[in-house]
C-alpha cells in the first residue's frame, strides 16, 4: 500500500509517499504566492518520480498552512500533530520538538508518541525563516550562507530588537559602525535562539530535543539554539519533510481504521485537482 502526506507550508510545499515500512519518495518545492494552487501538479511530479499512478495511493493527508480545501486529500491534520508524528518515527525518544518554519515557529511536547502540548509564535516574524530571509537580503548575502558565515564570528554583535523591521535597521546600523557581517549574523542568530528558547521553555524543554523545519538547515541558528538549550539536539536527515512524513504516517494509521469498501469509494471520489481557497467551493478533506 502507498500513503501520501502533503505539507503545504507558507514557503515550501513537501510531499512524502511511503509504503508500510519506508519512505518511497519525497518532493520539495517552493509554495510561492500562486503555487498553492499548483499543489496537484506537484503531486503528479511526486507520482511520476515514484513511478506510481494516482489511483495507487491508498490514503492522502494534507497538512500545513494550506491544508484546507485540498480536493485530493482524504483528510487534513494540523502540522503540529504531523511534525510530532514524523519526528517520533525518526527519533522515538524525543520529548520536545522545535520547528522553525517559513512563517511560524513552534514548540511541541511529545509523550509516548502522543501530542501533549504545543506553543506557537504569535503574529511576529522573529524566529522564523522569513526573518532570516529579510536579514540576509539586508546584508546582501544568500540566506543559505548566513549560517556558515556566522560561525566565523569571534565577537557576536549585540542586537537589541528582534522585530523584523527594526532588527533589519539595527543590522544596517551596526554595518555602518564597521561591525563585520560575521559578527552581526552571529548576534542575530543568538537573538533568535533566545527568543525561540524562551517561547518553547513555556512548555518546558525536556531532553531529548529534536529540531526540524527549514530554519534548522541554518547551521548558525542550530548552534546558537543548542548553546541556549545547553545540550545537543537531534536533527532528522531532511528536516523539511517531517510534517509531510507525519501526514503519510497518519494516512497509514487512518487506512487501518476504515473498511476496504469505504476506502475504494473514497479513492474513486478523489480528484487530482487544484487546491481551492477559503470560500471557493469544494471542502473535501475537512475534519470530520
Amino acid at each position: 500500500m502507498f500513503f501520501a502526506g502533503l505539507d503545504i507550508g507558507s514557503t515550501i510545499t513537501k510531499i512524502v509517499i511511503k509504503t508500510e515500512d519506508e519512505i518511497w519518495t519525497s518532493v520539495i518545492r517552493p509554495t510561492g504566492a500562486e503555487h498553492r494552487r499548483l499543489a496537484h501538479k506537484l503531486m503528479e511530479e511526486a507520482l511520476q518520480k515514484a513511478n506510481l499512478t494516482f489511483g495507487q495511493l491508498d490514503y492522502i493527508i494534507a497538512t500545513g498552512y494550506g491544508r484546507i480545501n485540498v480536493p485530493f486529500a482524504d483528510r487534513q491534520v494540523t502540522e503540529i500533530s504531523c511534525h510530532m508524528r514524523g519526528i517520533n518515527w525518526f527519533f522515538p525518544g524525543v520529548k520536545t520538538i522545535i520547528d522553525i518554519g517559513g512563517q511560524d515557529c513552534k514548540g511541541i511536547k511529545v509523550n509516548n508518541g502522543k501530542l501533549v502540548n504545543f506553543v506557537m509564535n504569535d503574529k511576529c516574524a522573529a524566529g522564523t525563516g522569513r526573518f532570516l530571509e529579510v536579514i540576509s537580503e539586508a546584508l546582501g548575502v544568500k540566506v543559505e550562507e548566513i549560517g556558515d558565515i556566522s560561525l566565523r564570528s569571534t565577537n557576536p554583535a549585540k542586537i537589541s530588537s528582534l522585530c523584523t523591521v527594526f532588527a533589519e535597521q539595527e543590522a544596517l546600523l551596526r554595518l555602518s559602525e564597521g561591525v563585520s557581517i560575521e559578527d552581526i549574523l552571529a548576534g542575530i542568530h543568538r537573538g533568535i535562539a533566545t527568543r525561540i528558547y524562551s517561547m518553547v521553555e513555556r512548555i518546558n524543554i525536556e531532553k531529548e530535543v529534536a529540531l526540524t523545519g527549514g530554519g534548522v538547515k541554518n547551521v548558525g541558528l542550530r548552534k546558537a539554539l543548542e548553546e541556549r538549550i545547553g545540550f545537543p539536539a537531534v536533527v532528522p536527515p531532511e528536516p523539511l519533510i517531517t510534517g509531510a512524513l507525519g501526514a503519510a504516517l497518519f494516512a497509514q494509521e487512518y487506512v487501518g481504521r476504515i473498511d476496504k469498501k469505504e476506502l475504494e469509494t473514497r479513492k474513486k471520489e478523489r480528484r487530482l485537482e487544484a487546491v481551492t481557497f477559503f470560500g471557493e467551493g469544494p471542502t473535501r478533506g475537512q475534519n470530520g
Partner: peptide, 21 residues
C-alpha cells in the same frame, strides 16, 4: 487573542491541534 474576527483564522491550527491531541 486580539478580539478581532480578522485575526481569528490563524487560531484554527491551535484549536485543531488541541482537538487532535
Amino acid at each position: 487573542q486580539d478580539y478581532s474576527t480578522a485575526a481569528l483564522e490563524p487560531l484554527r491550527t491551535r484549536f485543531q491541534a488541541f482537538a487532535e491531541s
